[in-house]
């Protein structure tokens, strides 16, 4: 039963419609291409600018020496070291707390009214601006807990900043573990804890670790959480060592950038772009590490 001829449809009508539909596809493809080009263009522009302006500043001296001449000369080694210290500590705090919190939400909390409320709160926290964390960290860790402007306060503030994302990411990674695996473990007579640690967590681990690494890296690139809690721009005298280091603030890359800019002209532009490039490379290296970890873990699972 042909439909042509019915409902007033003619062969010519169909041809016309076909043509219009084909053209629609071409047009749509053009839009997609355009949007992609814009997004890519912005990335290329940013990377290009930073590379072109930053590379001239790079040198072994720049990476390994402290600033000299009232911050206008020398290198940025203390800033790099400070950023690494902040990142490492944040990672160490956030790994157990965030992961265990995510595991609890995914496996034990259920879906009651309070749990939904907590989950909603965590989601909103994940979207809260970094400066709020900075103020929170200042009020709670620096003032109330009397930690002062210190690496310790910075760790805690950055950890607070990174935690919501890590908790949510962990919860999602666990919920992505196929139900058939969990069932297999239970049917085999594994306890809840054994099921979690022997079957569920190993399967979810690549996703969990990637999330932890990425968010600690991201946190360490943020200037505002440490603005009021850990950052120092200029240090007179030698840097403290050992435990003393944790009680004092630290130079770090994002803060150096923000302050450097504010000093308006005193610092050579080249130095600022160089710092910019180093910070970007640092974050890129971390992201790359996360991708490697995930790829290796996946491979091990299916090898």
């Amino acid at each position: 039963m042909a439909i042509v001829g019915k409902f007033g449809l003619s062969e010519a009508d169909l041809r016309k419609r076909d043509q219009a539909r084909q053209q629609g596809s071409t047009l749509y493809r053009g839009w997609l291409l355009g949007a992609t080009a814009i997004a890519l263009g912005i990335i290329v522009l940013i990377l290009g600018t930073i590379l072109v302006r930053g590379i001239p500043a790079l040198s072994w001296q720049f990476l390994s020496q402290p600033p000299t001449d009232g911050m206008t000369g020398g290198g940025i080694w203390p800033q790099i070291r400070g950023s690494l210290v902040l990142m490492g500590g944040t990672f160490a705090v956030v790994l157990p707390v965030g992961v265990l919190g995510g595991v609890y939400l995914a496996e034990y909390a259920g879906n009651g009214r309070w749990v939904r409320l907590v989950r909603g709160a965590v989601t909103s926290l994940a979207g809260t601006p970094a400066i709020i964390y900075g103020l929170f960290g200042f009020a709670v860790f620096v003032i109330s807990m009397k930690l002062g402007i210190s690496v310790l306060a910075g760790w805690l503030t950055l950890a607070t900043f990174a935690l919501p994302v890590i908790v949510l990411n962990t919860e999602n990674a666990i919920k992505l573990v196929p139900e058939s695996l969990t069932e297999a473990a239970y049917a085999l007579g594994l306890s809840r804890c054994q099921t979690l640690y022997r079957v569920v967590l190993p399967h979810a681990l690549p996703g969990i670790v990637t999330g932890v690494v990425l968010s600690s890296g991201r946190a360490a690139g943020e200037a505002t959480p440490i603005l009021l809690t850990a950052g120092i721009y200029y240090r007179s005298g030698a840097a403290p060592t050992g435990m003393e280091m944790l009680r004092k603030g630290t130079e770090n890359l994002p803060y150096h950038l923000a302050e450097g800019y504010r000093q308006g002209g005193k610092i050579p532009e080249k130095t600022i772009w160089g710092t910019c490039l180093v910070l970007m490379l640092l974050v890129l290296v971390i992201n790359f590490a996360a991708i490697l970890i995930r790829a290796r873990a996946r491979q091990k699972q299916i090898a």
Binding site: P178, S180, L181, E183, A184, A185, Y186, A187, L188, G189, V199, P202, H203, Q301, I302
Partner: peptide, 15 residues
């Protein structure tokens, strides 16, 4: 479950 084992419709080996 030690006493009663189970096999499922879709094979579900652990990874």
């Amino acid at each position: 479950r030690r006493r009663v084992g189970m096999v499922f419709q879709k094979p579900n080996p652990f990874p």
